[in-house]
Structure formats: structure tokens, C-alpha cells
Simulated scan of single mutants.
Amino acid sequence: MTDKPVTLAAIVGAHGVTGEVRLKLFGQGPDSLKAYKGFDAGNRRLTLKTIRPGPSGAVARFAEIGGRTDAEGLRGTALTVPRSALPPLAEGEFYHIDLMDLPCVSDAGEALGHVAAVENFGAGDILEIQRPSIEGKPGKRFMVPIHAAQIGEDQAVIDSAFVD
């Protein structure tokens, strides 16, 4: 497990004139952010005071944001926590951050590359695999449904029927 920063939300704009911000959420909803006292926000730390559901995400108030101008200045800022701050998962569950850069091999033993992205287009998680570079050119990418992979701590084994 790495302790990379995990983005839980991003500030998408100001809400009102008192310093509240609109958030785009990348987790389980506004209540999931209440478990964290503060967030790393670029080169500063923000302390959550309140959060509630809002249009297309949430509306939050942070102790360090005093007015609309401050809030507008944070547009586009990612709110992160260290990976170690996230709650433990049940067997067979993974945070996307844990899958990034995970080496991949086929079930026939072929080295395939590494996980470059985890996508979800509505029908379940999909792993995007980056093939190794060849002669300085990036290898091509291909996608496989996560159910076609056996995820281990040190590698993902991909069902050969899904290898491109």
C-alpha cells in the first residue's frame, strides 16, 4: 500500500457570498467527507466546518475560507487525504489508487504492462492497461473489465481472452 494523496473532491466554484464552495465529489457522497478533519488543498490545509448536498455534488464551508473572493480563488483545487487515512476495505475491494501502476501479466504468463487508469462508464469498473514502451514509443493501451482480472498485492493477472 502506498501513501499517495487520494483526491476525494474538487472545488468547482463559490456558493453565495460567505465563503462556501461547491464541490465535485469522487466518493460516496457528502457525508463520507465528514470523517476527515481536514484536507490538503494544493499548498494549504483546509479544515471542514460543514457540508451538505448541493447541485451536482456538495456545498461546504471551510474554516480558512472567509468570503466569496477566497472561495473563487480556489476553483479547480483538489481536496486530498493520504491513502493511509482512508477506511479499511473488505476482502476483494480496492481503492483505485491501489490499482494504479500495478504490473499486469496474462494468465498465460505474458508481461502486459501496468494499470494506467481505472474507468467506470456505468456498467462496472474497467482497467486500462498500458503496454510497455517499444523503441522509445509508448505502448498501446487496452481495456479489460475488472472481473477479468485477479488482483493481488503485487500484480494483476488478466484473463488471456481479454488481452489485446
Rank of each mutant, 00 (worst) to 15 (best):
Y36I: 01
L127M: 07
G38C: 12
A85Q: 11
S106R: 01
R61M: 10
I134S: 12
Q155V: 14
P82V: 09
L48F: 02
G66N: 15
T69I: 13
A117F: 13
A161V: 15
E110R: 15
I151F: 02
G29I: 14
V105N: 05
L79D: 03
D164A: 14
F62R: 01
S106I: 07
E135K: 09
I126S: 05
F39Q: 03
V115T: 09
L79A: 09
L33H: 05
R131P: 01
T69M: 08
R75G: 10
L102K: 06
R83D: 02
P55F: 10
P138E: 11
E128H: 08
A149P: 04
V157F: 09
K140R: 13
A10M: 15
V115N: 07
A71T: 06
P138Q: 11
N120F: 11
T7S: 06
I129G: 00
S84L: 08
F121L: 11
E119K: 14
I151N: 00
L33R: 06
G73R: 13
M143I: 02
L102R: 06
A14P: 00
P30S: 14
L89I: 07
P5H: 05
S32V: 01
F39I: 10
Q130Y: 09
N120S: 14
V118H: 09
I11F: 03
I129N: 00
F94S: 00
V157C: 00
L46D: 01
E119C: 11
A90C: 00
R22F: 03
L25M: 06
I158Y: 07
R52E: 14
D70C: 10
P103I: 14
V21C: 11
R45N: 09
A9L: 10
E72H: 02
I97M: 06
G136C: 10
T50E: 15
F39V: 08
T2I: 10
A117S: 12
G42T: 04
T2Q: 11
R75L: 02
I126A: 08
I146M: 13
K137D: 07
